[in-house]
């Protein structure tokens, strides 16, 4: 047999990326999104979700590592019916930085 167990991907060496998602606001959306990442053992470093002014929608901010699977992850996110848009920002985006004082 030639099958081999792949080495687990080391994510910590990669640069971080901030993803900004607009989603429909109803119970279950988070579960659809978290499932995608968990299934692929793609680590989410940070997650933040609040309803938007338009009560039907929420915005989700994700802090993730930029490994080679990120493009595929974004395509999978865009396929979710409740995900309306996905925007990609660099790690320098302030959303998580400004929250850091709550985690010390």
């Amino acid at each position: 047999m030639i099958e081999q167990v792949a080495e687990p991907l080391q994510q910590s060496g990669f640069a971080k990326v901030v993803l900004e998602l607009d989603v429909n606001n109803h119970p279950g959306v988070m579960s659809h999104i978290c499932n995608l990442f968990a299934r692929r053992a793609f680590n989410m470093e940070g997650i933040l979700c609040m309803p938007m002014a338009d009560a039907g929608r929420s915005r989700i901010w994700l802090l993730v590592f930029e490994d080679q699977r990120l493009e595929q992850m974004i395509l999978q996110l865009e396929k979710l019916v409740d995900v309306l848009s996905v925007r990609r920002h660099g790690a320098e985006h302030e959303v998580f930085e400004r929250l850091e004082r709550f985690f010390h």
Binding site: P27, G28, S31, H32, R39, L80, V81
Partner: peptide, 14 residues
């Protein structure tokens, strides 16, 4: 069943 079928459906509703 909603939670259970998240990964095997294209979409699901409760």
């Amino acid at each position: 069943i909603y939670g259970m079928t998240v990964p095997v459906t294209k979409h699901n509703f409760l």
